[in-house]
């Protein structure tokens, strides 16, 4: 690992001043992704601003019944929170399906959103990767890309965003709050991450000196009937091939409210607006679920090693909606 200057920030003001003053600084939360990438020489911060003891650890109920989640709440603590389990079970399930018990105790909410892709070539310094080294090419496209994306990709990058939590937050209309020396702004979670286009190294709309301070999840009646379903190569401690976060309310046999988001298939947590449009008001039947899945994946485009994900995503959408219809949510 390359040497770096270490700054321990006791509060948000100190942290945002430190990253504003030090170009090349990185914020350190739980360390589960950054420390690993620094050891692999993918991340090369000249200064590490340690925010792990900044008191952004509250999970507070908003007046309307939504939640305000501090950026440094640990993934395990958020998943175990009674209000998350009862009002937003899809979020608890998504958190619990990510990583391992140890890593969930370390990983923070803000860090989870900003984690980097697990594309094999991104972490391989000998490989071409436009995300790691702009202009170098993409070895994933002609290489091993079983885990890579089928939606929202470009000829320059087919990496996925690996988070489970963010997929649930996308379905729940979450809003990210970011602070810098210039002030505070709010960004809808679905607009936080960029598609790669010809600049895959730019992954979010955040400026380099902005710190995520909180995530707000608005109150939602449909969220009480929600689930997260993750398909992966082994039963636990693996990234998603495909995942679906969904919430469903049915009245008189018709879909009255629905939220769907996909993970493992795109460079960002993928809100399935097209599927929601097809489903809203439609009969809550297998045929409608399939039609919605077809509509959402209509523009999907795979590579030889990952085009199976397109049909897998359709089937996982249908299976998740069917389970919500038959068994209800995960609460």
């Amino acid at each position: 690992m390359r040497p770096f200057a270490y700054v321990s920030a006791p509060d948000v003001d100190t942290a945002v001043r430190a990253i504003a003053e030090q170009p090349g600084a990185k914020l350190l939360g739980g360390g589960t992704n950054l420390v690993d990438l620094m050891r692999q020489d993918v991340e090369r911060p000249t200064t590490v601003v340690d925010i792990s003891s900044v008191p952004l650890t509250g999970v507070d109920e908003l007046p309307d019944g939504g939640l305000r989640i501090g950026a440094l709440v640990r993934n395990s603590h958020l998943a175990a929170h009674p209000l998350v389990r009862t009002r937003f079970p899809v979020l608890a399930q998504a958190l619990l399906s990510g990583a391992s018990g140890q890593l969930r105790n370390m990983a923070t909410v803000g860090g989870n959103l900003l984690q980097r892709t697990r594309c094999l070539y991104f972490v391989d310094g000998a490989a071409a990767c436009n995300k790691r080294e702009p202009g170098s090419g993409c070895d994933a496209i002609g290489g091993f890309h079983r885990g890579n994306a089928v939606l929202g990709t470009s000829e320059h990058c087919v990496a996925t965003h690996p988070s489970d939590m963010a997929v649930a937050l996308a379905a729940l209309d979450a809003v990210v709050e970011a602070q810098s020396v210039r002030g505070t702004r709010r960004i809808p979670l679905v607009e936080l991450h960029r598609l790669p286009g010809d600049t895959p190294h730019l992954e979010t709309v955040l400026d380099a000196d902005e710190l995520i301070t909180a995530v707000e999840v608005p109150a939602s009646a449909v969220a009480a009937t929600s689930r997260y379903r993750k398909v992966r190569d082994r039963a636990s401690f693996a990234f998603a091939l495909v995942s679906v976060a969904a919430a469903l309310d049915v009245e008189d046999g018709a879909v009255s409210a629905v939220r769907v988001a996909l993970g493992g298939v795109a460079p960002k947590p993928w809100r399935a607006y097209e599927a929601e449009r097809v489903l809203t008001g439609a009969p809550a039947t297998e045929e409608s679920f399939r039609a919605a899945a077809e509509a959402e994946l209509a523009d999907a485009s795979g590579l030889p090693g990952n085009d199976f994900k397109i049909e897998l995503a359709r089937r996982t959408i249908v299976a998740t909606l069917r389970q919500l219809r038959v068994e209800g949510g995960a609460a």
């Binding site: 739980g30 360390g31 018990g101 140890q102």
Partner: peptide
């Protein structure tokens, strides 16, 4: 519980 290898 945490993994001490990823902790500074």
């Amino acid at each position: 519980r945490i993994t001490a290898c990823l902790a500074l």
